[in-house]
Amino acid sequence: MLDDLSRYLGSESTRQLIVDQLVQHVELALLPLVVGVALAIPLGWLAQRHPLLRTSLLGVANVVYTVPSLAFFVVIPGVIGTQILAPVNVIAALSVYTAALLVRPVVDALDAVPGHVIAAATAMGYRPLRRFLAVELPLAVPVLTAGVRVASVSNISLASVGALLGIGGLGALFTSGFQTSYLPPIIVGIVLVLALALVVDLVLVGLRRLLTPWARAGGAR
């Protein structure tokens, strides 16, 4: 077994292939994370400000999140007019997933900002947009990062499905392994997916600590 693994990893071209798949996987999983966050924040902001939008947006988000990912990958090309095998389909689909997953945490986080803090900001002379960026959003970071961490794990695992559509990523190691009943690529794939999820999670935690020095002050939160 270990022999198999070391023989598999012994080949220069295989190692190169694995690195390529890893890079592609990162792209497939994390680009949507960034896009999804960027979409969810303004959507959450709108939802939080207008009661009608809130119900409808949160409803839509829930529905979207329950659509099976594979179906999504297949439908998206029809919607945005790309080739069925283009990586951009996976990226678009996962972005929509991420946004759908994150709208609620954004709304919840904004809801949790105390009313008197917002009123104080208004009374100081903040205009709404600046107030959102300078006061409400920073205060939403702790709740928001919790959501982003879930989304990042979910994306990293979902991005493997791209391989079923013949798009690269670490999922390709699984498919090739299954097709040839050869275990090493599958093991390497699993390990790398887990490691990637772990590293990204650590980065997110570090980012949160960096952005919220105030949350640790006084041990009040």
């Binding site: 009123a119 104080a120 900001a121 100081m124």
Partner: peptide, 21 residues
């Protein structure tokens, strides 16, 4: 309004300080 408010001090109940600053 924003201009007006910058020229009028406002102290709110519970202080309303920005927790992140």
């Amino acid at each position: 309004p924003a201009q007006l408010r910058r020229g009028i001090g406002y102290v709110i109940q519970q202080a309303g300080l920005f927790p992140h600053r």
